[in-house]
Design a protein around this nucleic acid. Structure first.
Length: 919
RNA sequence: GCGGAUGUGGUGAAAUUGGUAGACACGCUAGACUUAGGAUCUAGUGCCGCGAGGCGUGGGGGUUCGAGUCCCUCCAUCCGCACCA
């Protein structure tokens, strides 16, 4: 009787569906376990073999936890808003909802074919109005909240308004923009518009003129993490700086808590470090410099207040507010020209050209707070508008960038360290004796730092300060396919819709492009207004809005009264295991943590961190194949001969290449333009070049799981993807080894069957059989507890090999073995479980316990080494004591041979049963 | 430049606390069997050597009875951040 994977898998997938095998309900009597995958964007290309890697690992773990008796939540859904569907809509006019629904359908078919134990009754799609209703609702909560630094949490905006009414903003310690102080009388005298304008400076979701990354190619603004090397992450279009009125979320209010929270979660150091860098905390001081002859001050942030006596100039970012105000007439033309050039430079140019030092003098001077000396104020684009205050106090002897600027423009450089030579460069050391620094002279830098901050604070020039690199998150996108803001404009002031008006659904538009006057696509919906005729917000939310809280919605996906019921989130709480790619390190994972902390502050959920344990699965890379076209012809030259011609390398579909040999007929049929292709062969063959790179449709190196499921079955695919290597590792896809795991399943099948059919024995298992089984139980539990998914597969193979050698068909052994195998190969496990006489799914079985008594040995082969070098092995009774082993070893003939007449210094017998003789 | 990782046979990789390096699988070699199957089985397979034996976890050094594992140092590859004051 042969192992027919197609028949078995289809039957059991049907069974699971019909019986709701994986439907999960809250059950207070059972301990919960939440296993989550990063939900996919349903792209038109369907799943390739890389996608399921993480899903298989999480499915194995979820099934493992179920066997241990946990109530496991293991859901799946779709991150369904996104650019590709919208770009497709622009080209074809087809509504993105239709494209998305088609793609979702295909994803579902492919996922089902692999046999995942998802509870599909909890599926969420971020583009579903019943879902984004609550994304909009959470946005409203952010809009209606401010961050109180004194209580260190978000609070309702109403409490702030109450404070304003009685005390003005005196005594308010909020995460906010710079706001001039006002008292209660002033507040109460303001118009509603003025009050609202002020409140925007405090709200956690706020509308403000902001320097943004504008991407003309996509027609939208982008967040910092959506820009890589000055071009958009999606599409690779150039990005420029632009001042625009945009929605932002005040994530900076949470910077410190986002940093501290990392200590409480089980993520890799690499990932935590990436988040720490992104948050970019630095300790230092804010120092205020008076501008000579003006009523202006310049505030700078410095991490080196100890070097304040080395300040010989100041530099403002070209975008700095004061540039225009303080520039004196003689320099105005020069400065305006410089600012104009700096503004028109794309981010990419600016980044790629960091070596060229540029800047210009404003003609204005600041006064040194301690010495009163005149300090020239320059502008230069090495100072970034977005970091600190957009202005620096320049210390050329202590900072290499300042040194470069001073050197280039011939500005004086004052040495600050004993014996320092400032002609070659700056010395940023903090452990050397200071000079030229008034009351700091003779101290070392790190002590001077403390003294300097004290003096600065005492004299009122500034104070010690912590600065973060993290910027507020731009939340507007000028696109169609995203969540509409639940916002309309009343006299230009943003006003949120009432809860009853949610969801605010996307309106229909005639085209998915911006309007002629540059408004976002939603502005095309001319009838889209509030009942009393107010204009709506035309931007939509970014892709990460819906993904920042989806793990909560799975707990209660159909709730119409709340984003999640409190008792459900109390039960399911944190995600215990989260698996996904590392590309979300500074995007999704940071935003989801931010929203979680915010919802915690409002006392809506019980946890501060969403994902307790996180594993980044490594990407599965594709092996691309190339043909070489001789330029200007339709001739293609084989890989080995390509150097003799002037050629262009072209990706070719890997499905028409076998072992680097191109199927030339298939190539001609592949694309019309190649129908008349001619080939220059080597050894009668056309050989392709190859390279390992990311799997993608455009590189023609995509391997779909469908064909492998058909040929070897889903169980084989699952085992093989786990067997490939450590989950976290990047690896090129390669099916060479798949026959190995397929062979394992066939061997497992044959333990139950011979040529006649089922053959099970009720005899008591032998000692050797029990040993083989219990060795595997032990490894299985140990390996999965440390998330080592690949080693488990090898141990299965060892076990089946041993049982095959023992010709074991004992029911008692096979029962436990089937349960062990079921997380990896659920279909065959169900089939065999049924053959063992069970009527319930193997998912409800109990994981066998490991019993150490079966691993106890009568005798043991002791490896004997001399000075750590293994020499021979000795079979001795396992019951012997260390001393007895030592005696036996020393008395043996082999030992005498290796001692060569010398006497041993000592003999070491270690618990791992290795004997080392020291000579 | 800063930060993080990784380096083991022909290949994917094991080796959990320092204790027989290379399990398991692919590939390869030789053979068996046959209803010729993308089948199964047997033996071999780190390198050098006919052999005894020697050498082996990127290079060099150290600690230890004993190091893939710990420490120092250098090299290579990958990833992230980057005029961040």
């Amino acid at each position: 009787m042969k192992y027919n994977h197609n028949e078995i898998e289809a039957a059991w997938q049907q069974y699971w569906k019909e019986n709701g095998t994986y439907k999960t309900t809250e059950d207070a009597s059972k301990e919960k376990f939440y296993v989550l995958d990063m939900f996919p964007y349903p792209s038109g290309a369907g799943l390739h073999v890389g996608h399921p890697l993480g899903y298989i690992a999480s499915d194995v773990y979820a099934r493992y936890k179920r066997l241990q008796g946990f109530n496991v939540l293991h859901p799946m859904g779709y991150d369904a808003f996104g650019l590709p569907a919208e770009q497709y809509a622009i080209q074809t006019g087809q509504h993105p909802a239709i494209t998305t629904a088609q793609n979702v359908k295909r994803y579902r078919e492919q996922l089902d074919r692999i046999g995942f134990s998802f509870d599909w009754s909890r599926e969420v799609q971020t583009c579903d109005p019943n879902y984004y209703k609550w994304t909009q609702w959470i946005f409203k909560q952010l809009f209606n909240a401010w961050y109180n630094n004194d209580t260190d949490k978000a609070e309702p905006i109403a409490s702030l308004i109450k404070h304003f009414e009685t005390n003005g903003n005196v005594g308010v310690n909020a995460a906010s923009e710079e706001v001039e102080s006002f008292d209660a009388n002033a507040w109460n005298s303001y118009s509603t518009e003025e009050q609202e304008q002020l409140l925007l400076h405090y709200r956690l979701a706020y509308l403000a003129d902001t320097w943004v990354n504008w991407c003309p190619g996509l027609g939208t603004v982008l967040a910092n993490e959506e820009v890589k090397d000055g071009v958009s992450e999606r599409g690779g279009f150039p990005v420029e700086r632009k001042l625009m009125r945009q929605w932002s979320l005040r994530i900076t209010a949470y910077a410190e808590r986002l940093l501290q929270g990392l200590e409480t979660i089980d993520w890799t150091d690499a990932l935590k470090e990436q988040q720490r860098n992104w948050i970019g905390k630095s300790n230092g001081a804010a120092v205020t410099f008076q501008v000579e002859g003006y009523d202006h001050t310049i505030e700078v942030f410095t991490t080196r207040p100890d070097t304040i006596f080395g300040v010989t100039f100041m530099v403002l970012a070209p975008e700095h507010d004061l540039v225009d105000e303080i520039t004196i007439a003689d320099h105005r033309e020069e400065v305006e020209k410089y600012v104009e050039v700096a503004k028109n430079r794309s981010e990419r140019d600016r980044m790629s050209d960091v070596k060229t030092i540029t800047g210009t003098f404003t003609g204005a001077y600041a006064l040194h707070p301690f010495t009163g000396e005149k300090i020239p104020i320059w502008i230069g684009d090495y100072v970034l508008a977005g970091y600190g205050t957009g202005a620096v106090m320049a210390v050329p002897s202590g900072d290499q960038r300042d040194w470069g600027f001073a050197h280039h423009f011939d500005i004086p450089i004052v040495p600050l360290i004993e014996g320092q030579d400032v002609s070659e460069g700056a010395d940023p050391s903090k452990d050397k004796v200071m000079i030229n620094s008034d009351f700091l002279n003779g101290m070392i830098g790190s002590d001077a730092m403390i003294a300097a901050i004290e003096a600065i604070e005492a004299k009122g020039f500034g104070k010690g300060k912590v600065n973060y690199r993290l910027r507020d998150a731009i939340f507007s996108r000028q696109r169609y396919w995203g969540e509409p803001f639940p916002v309309y404009f009343n006299n230009d002031l943003p006003t949120v819709l009432s809860d009853g008006e949610l969801p605010l659904e996307l309106p229909e538009v005639d085209k998915y492009l911006p309007t002629e006057d540059g408004e976002p696509p939603l502005a095309r919906a001319t009838s889209w207004k509030t009942a009393d005729g107010h204009t709506m917000e035309y931007s939509t939310m970014p892709g990460w809005a819906g993904s920042s809280w989806y793990f909560l919605r799975y707990m209660d996906p159909n709730n119409n009264d709340a984003f999640v019921a409190r008792d459900k989130v109390d039960y399911w709480n944190q995600v215990d295991l989260y698996i996904g790619g590392s590309e979300h390190a500074t995007g999704h994972l940071l935003y989801a943590r931010f929203w979680t902390k915010f919802l915690y502050d409002l006392d809506l959920i019980p946890m501060q961190e969403p994902f307790q344990k996180l594993i980044n699965q490594g990407m599965i890379l594709g092996r691309s194949s190339f043909v070489y076209r001789v330029n200007g012809t339709n001739q293609f030259v084989s890989f080995g001969l390509r150097k003799e011609y002037d050629t262009t390398r072209i990706h070719v579909d890997v499905n028409i290449v076998d072992n680097d040999e191109l199927d030339t007929d298939a190539f001609k049929a592949w694309r019309p333009e190649f129908a008349n292709a001619e080939f220059i062969l080597e050894d009668g063959k056309y050989l392709c070049g190859h390279e390992v790179e990311k799997m993608s449709k455009s590189k023609w190196n995509v391997q779909s799981p469908d064909e492998l499921c058909e040929r070897f079955g889903a169980d084989t695919l699952r085992l093989y993807e786990m067997f490939l290597g450590p989950l976290e590792q990047y690896k090129p896809w390669d099916t060479k080894g798949i026959t190995g795991v397929y062979g394992f399943l066939k061997k497992l099948w044959r333990l139950f069957h011979n040529d006649e059919g089922l053959q099970l024995s009720d005899e008591a298992p032998s000692k050797a059989e029990l040993k083989a089984l219990h060795k595997t139980i032990k490894k299985f539990r140990e390996d999965l507890d440390r998330y080592s998914f690949n080693t488990v597969v090898s141990n299965f193979m060892i076990c089946v090999n041993e049982l095959t050698d023992l010709k074991c068909n004992k029911r008692a052994i096979l029962e436990d073995l089937v349960v062990l195998v079921s997380p990896y190969a659920p279909h065959i496990a169900e089939e065999l479980w049924k053959k063992l006489g069970h009527t319930e799914s193997v998912s409800y079985a109990t994981l066998p316990e490991f019993d150490p008594q079966y691993l106890v040995e009568d005798s043991f082969t002791y490896p004997v080494s001399f000075n750590g070098k293994m020499r021979f092995k000795m079979e001795l009774s396992a019951a012997l004591s260390k001393e007895e082993v030592e005696k036996e070893v020393l008395a043996s003939e082999q030992t005498a041979k290796y001692l060569e007449g010398k006497s041993p210094k000592k003999v070491i017998v270690v618990p791992k049963k290795i004997v080392n003789v020291v000579v």
